[in-house]
Design a protein around this nucleic acid. Sequence first.
DNA 1: GGTACAACTCTCAGCGCTGAGATTCTAGCG
DNA 2: CGCTAGAATCTCAGCGCTGAGAGTTGTACC
Lengths: 166, 166
Amino acid sequence: MSSSRRPSPPDVSPAERDALRLWVVLSRAHAAIATHAAADVARHGLTLAEFGVLEALYHKGPMLLGEVQRSLLVSSGGVTYLVDRLEQRGLVRRDKCAEDRRARYAVLTDAGTAFVREVFPQHAAAVAGAMAGLSADEQRVARSLLRTLGTQAAELEAEQEREPAA
Amino acid sequence: MSSSRRPSPPDVSPAERDALRLWVVLSRAHAAIATHAAADVARHGLTLAEFGVLEALYHKGPMLLGEVQRSLLVSSGGVTYLVDRLEQRGLVRRDKCAEDRRARYAVLTDAGTAFVREVFPQHAAAVAGAMAGLSADEQRVARSLLRTLGTQAAELEAEQEREPAA
DNA sequence: GGTACAACTCTCAGCGCTGAGATTCTAGCG
DNA sequence: CGCTAGAATCTCAGCGCTGAGAGTTGTACC
């Protein structure tokens, strides 16, 4: 029973300590950029997820709702919610899918396309501004590292789903 | 009025395009790691934010609620909510602050200290496992880049708050 | 063809958190 | 000393999203 204010550190290896620090730094960087990006799209009354739907549809054309779901990493209920909101604003429309009557396409309306065309460059500039702390080369390195980090972690996820209990 | 399925890309510079790609990759990496970390603490019925409070108190000792708030980047209502929950579980206690009767300390109870001591190493291992896609050297580089990215972006935020209208 | 199973979407209760306002207290100034 | 500005916390309405379950349609195997 030590009465010291600072408790003795539990057994955590230096490598684990480093991983935890990276996790903190990754979280803070993500939060900082997300705040910027969210503030930018909020000027148009949109959330980041809503804007993500528009962006995806703009770049990939009409998508099944399930594709949008996997592309944005949201839940099934989430896609319904997001597309509902964008539909109410007249930016997106739901179209029937001829090959599969369970599925539906999300499609940008003309107004939606015009909206993205106008807003996307501003958003790109806002994100680039938030990233300006790193040089172009540093951004390239960061992108490469984060890509492998993300895909490896996601793969680990998939493995653990295949064998839930050890 | 091109009728092409793929709309012509709006005017976005290559640098901005790269920044956007980095933003996507950063988001996905964060989401993947967060999923892992959240699943780990969920085994003990905790959220990541709740665990963050415990971790902060464990490493820094008693903290004013405002310090916890700034440390975890949550809202004022968020701290109240988080500390309420941890207090209900008997892991944290609120102590009066002698110097300032408006403020209150959040303090780990004995049970809370014991809990962190037991769970923290497991959590460190889980996070390290999620980071295993990068070598130790790569993690160091990533940490350095993300640190400057995060602090620079946060500083930009602070500047814009000082002069809200241009 | 029928039957079981899986895929796609939607519904809805509820969680975690935000942010504006209320409350309580401190600090500084005349 | 009284007063005002502002800080620390709490309250509470409400937002964005999750995830389990329902409804519907496609698929594969008897």
